[in-house]
Amino acid sequence: MASLADRVVVITGAGRGIGREHALLAAREGARVVVNDTGADAAGRNADPSVAQAVVDEITASGGTAVAHTADVATVAGAVELLELARSTYGAVHGLVNNAGILRDRMFVNMSEDDWDAVVRGQLGATFAPSQVFARYWRDESKAGRQPVASVVNVSSTSGLIGAIGQTNYGAAKAGIAALTLMVAQELARYGVRTNALTPVARTRMTQDLPGIGEMVAAPEDPDAFDVYHPGNIPPLVAWLLTEDCPANGQVFYVKGGEIRQFTGWSYGWTVDKGDRWTVAELDKELRTRV
């Protein structure tokens, strides 16, 4: 039996790249899919509604079930419209993949306020708004005695959890998504909702043109070799997280090719404790060799 049979899955940013692969696999696994994408370029400009519809057409041509949605989900209004479309079309929602996001790389000292605001909005905002709107729906279902078995999957990045030069806006937003994931997982578990995140490493329009990165993620010359950076390597984990009986909650995973790692987050390193208030001179002596 298909792993997502009878599940309704909403995927944002599903028009291209990894998001498109999520939508295609979810449909092959039996899910009814809502494909959300404004069709904008990687910087969040020049929307094109045909992008989402093209993925829907691809799914339906293969015998799957899907519907397109093109509103901007970085706004609560857009997220409400997305939820309403899913419910009016399929009657319920069981999974949400917050994949939508934009990229505007700049060195920090050269970054404009607009580039900062746009990326934080297009990444963290586009995760917050759908998550909250759908969480309220699932909470209301739970309180009405219709306990959901639902799943949210967010997309963070190693840029946020490890760091990357030139991506302070993107990295800060992605770190925020990871933190949001952990806290929402704790809050929504009571309503039957699991929340997890992943940091994918794959070839997309956001990576293939980056200096030094594009060459690294290029497809292998040997057509029979495993393509480690193919975006289709990422969706199996997402599909598993969307399954009805998946046990994971509050987890962040790293995914590249056939490799999956668990991120364990911030943790304490060394500790010093005087048991009293420090002086600056004492701290200098104690910490200088530790940091």
Score class of each variant (00 low, 15 high):
Gln132Gly: 10
Thr181Trp: 09
Ile59Phe: 09
Trp116Ile: 00
Ser142Cys: 11
Ala202Gly: 06
Glu259Met: 12
Trp266Ala: 15
Glu21Ala: 11
Asp6Ile: 10
Gly258Thr: 13
Val184Lys: 11
Leu188Lys: 03
Ala179Ile: 12
Ala118Pro: 04
Trp278Glu: 08
Val153Cys: 02
Thr168Met: 05
Trp116Leu: 06
Asp227Met: 01
Ala175Gln: 04
Ala27Thr: 06
Val67Ser: 09
Ala68Trp: 03
Glu286Ile: 07
Thr279Val: 09
Leu283Gln: 12
Ile18Thr: 09
Arg277Ser: 10
Phe253Asp: 11
Ala189Asn: 08
Ile213Trp: 01
Phe108Tyr: 12
Ile165Thr: 13
Val55Thr: 07
Asp114Lys: 14
Asp284Pro: 07
Ala179Trp: 09
Ala26Thr: 07
Asp37Leu: 06
Asn36Cys: 10
Val8Gly: 03
Ile162Thr: 10
Val8Ile: 15
Tyr170Trp: 03
Leu83Val: 09
Glu286Gly: 09
Pro247Thr: 11
Val119Ser: 02
Ala92Tyr: 11
Glu21His: 05
Thr12Asp: 01
Ala86Phe: 00
Gln132Met: 08
Thr289Gln: 13
Thr181Cys: 05
Val55Cys: 10
Gly125Thr: 02
Thr127Ser: 11
Asp140Met: 08
Glu113Ile: 06
Leu83Ser: 02
Ala178Gly: 10
Val51Ala: 09
Ala2Trp: 12
Val97His: 04
His22Asn: 14
Gln167Asp: 00
Leu83Pro: 01
Thr38Gly: 03
Glu244Gln: 13
Thr65Gly: 05
Asp105Trp: 04
Val97Gly: 02
Ile234Leu: 04
Ala42Arg: 15
Val153Trp: 12
Thr127Arg: 01
Gly214Leu: 03
Asp37Pro: 05
His69Leu: 06
Gly269Gln: 05
Asp117His: 13
Ser3Arg: 14
Glu282Ile: 10
Ala52Thr: 06
Gly212Leu: 02
Trp138Gln: 07
Asn196His: 06
Ala92Ser: 13
Val56Ser: 12
Ser62Gly: 15
Glu113Lys: 04
Val73Pro: 00
Ala118Glu: 07
Tyr170Val: 05
Pro148Arg: 10
Gly166Ala: 00
Leu287Cys: 13
Asp48Met: 01
Ala185Arg: 05
Asn249Ser: 15
Ile59His: 08
Ala144Glu: 02
Met183Thr: 15
Met1Leu: 13
Gly95Arg: 10
Val80Asn: 12
Arg20Glu: 01
Gln251Ile: 12
Ser50Asn: 11
Pro247Asn: 11
Arg16Gln: 07
Gly171Met: 11
Gln132Pro: 02
Thr243Leu: 01
Gly212Val: 10
Thr279Lys: 02
Ser88Ile: 07
Gly91Met: 06
Ala23Tyr: 06
Val120Glu: 08
